[in-house]
Design a protein around this nucleic acid. Structure first.
Lengths: 137, 137
DNA sequence: ATAAACCTTACCATCAGGTGAAGGTCAAGT
DNA sequence: ACTTGACCTTCACCTGATGGTAAGGTTTAT
């Protein structure tokens, strides 16, 4: 199986497959006489694993650890769980950060008339030190 | 006022002030005889505007538009509001995406024993096609 | 005079890719 | 046998916003 077929079967682009190999996430693939990378079912399974982990937002560094754990039958599931929980905690942080920004922004947007006049509470909020939501601490 | 003082007064790093100037977000600052950038109160106000917009997550490209609107007294507040609402919609998208990932991950994590055994539902979920939460659509 | 603290430009790194060039290879049709 | 088009190869540069580093000039205080 060439890289194009592996890419189609896994949903990981050719570019990214080469990149994953280059950065050590994947072992160097065997080559044909012409130098083409060759993949088998096992390689596609690894690509699918990476794809699903990326879709969940795991960083490539963490996926490297996950792949190592996956292929190590002496693993402890506690290690996997700890990694996932660490990542989940970061997700929670990110979500709260976005929600905080959204809430502050909504406060400004609600006060903006949104008409033909230049007066705008959004610009005022950015120009003046205290955003209306942050001031009464 | 040198760049260091402006940075301290605004909370924007020296690096970023130079970068904002280089990319056209800020006008080129006047220079001292030795070639040092010079800032006044107005420059600091602009930096503060940028900083607050960045803290709310606005991209530099959007901040450029916001700065232009801010300095244009013929603006319509509707234009500012539309920009902010567009950004807020993207924020909502991002939040939902993170929440979806979190929820899928939580489903896997909850099923993982987290003990000394190798069996792990997280790895299984990544290795098998259907994640437990995505299947019963 | 010298040392510390400032400033300058210019380059490299990050993260997870995307894009494009320049060229080699393979399989099918003519 | 030859051409075409789809595939493959490596190399290198782009994104966004920021941090870092290096080499060198300037200012200020001792």
């Amino acid at each position: 199986m060439n890289i194009g077929e592996a890419a189609a079967a896994s949903g990981v682009s050719r570019k990214m497959i080469r990149y994953y190999e280059e950065t050590g996430l994947l072992a160097t693939a065997p080559r044909s006489d012409a130098g083409y990378r060759l993949y088998n079912e096992s390689g596609v399974q690894q690509l699918l694993f990476i794809k699903r982990a990326r879709d969940l937002g795991f960083s490539l560094e963490r996926i490297k650890t996950l792949l190592d754990l996956w292929q190590n039958t002496d693993r402890h599931s506690a290690d996997v769980k700890a990694l996932a929980q660490q990542y989940m905690a970061e997700l929670d942080q990110d979500i709260m950060h976005l929600q905080s920004m959204r809430q502050q922004l909504a406060g400004l947007v609600d006060q903006c008339h949104g008409d033909d006049e230049p007066a705008c509470s959004i610009l005022d909020g950015l120009a003046q030190a205290n955003s209306p939501l942050a001031s009464p601490t």
